[in-house]
Amino acid sequence: MTIKRVLVVDDEIHIVHVVAIKLRNNGYEVLTAENGEQAYEIASTEKPDIIVTDCQMPVMNGLELVEKLRSDEELKNVPVIMLTARSFDIDEDIKQHLNISECLSKPFSPKELLRNIEDVLFSTATNI
């Protein structure tokens, strides 16, 4: 079984750190970025299996990142889980339009995030 790559994007270093530890402890390879622009560059070269991103970030926010991913032929199908402290910023229409797999509100449980990542990766694999 191949090790899945997860790109974790957040400008809060502590959040990136805790998610990375949780995922690494559960057998994932973790890539990190602190804003959307950096995340897009990493995603373009590293081709992660899934992206976990914060919504409010400097330089390029989470929604702008997803929009850019969806317009990129190579990255348009990468599943995205959004972490946000302002869940009302992302309504169902935006979620469907940008094909966002899940939205988790901050504060979040690392266990719940892991479960969501597993579910999304499983359903992606099944669909293929």
Binding site: E12, I15, V18, V19, I21, P107, P110, K111
Partner: peptide, 18 residues
């Protein structure tokens, strides 16, 4: 305010759960 309060709270809850 909610965003700013939730950010440190998210770290506290995530690390304590870990």
């Amino acid at each position: 305010v909610s965003h700013e309060l939730k950010t440190p709270l998210a770290s506290i809850l995530a690390y304590s759960e870990m």
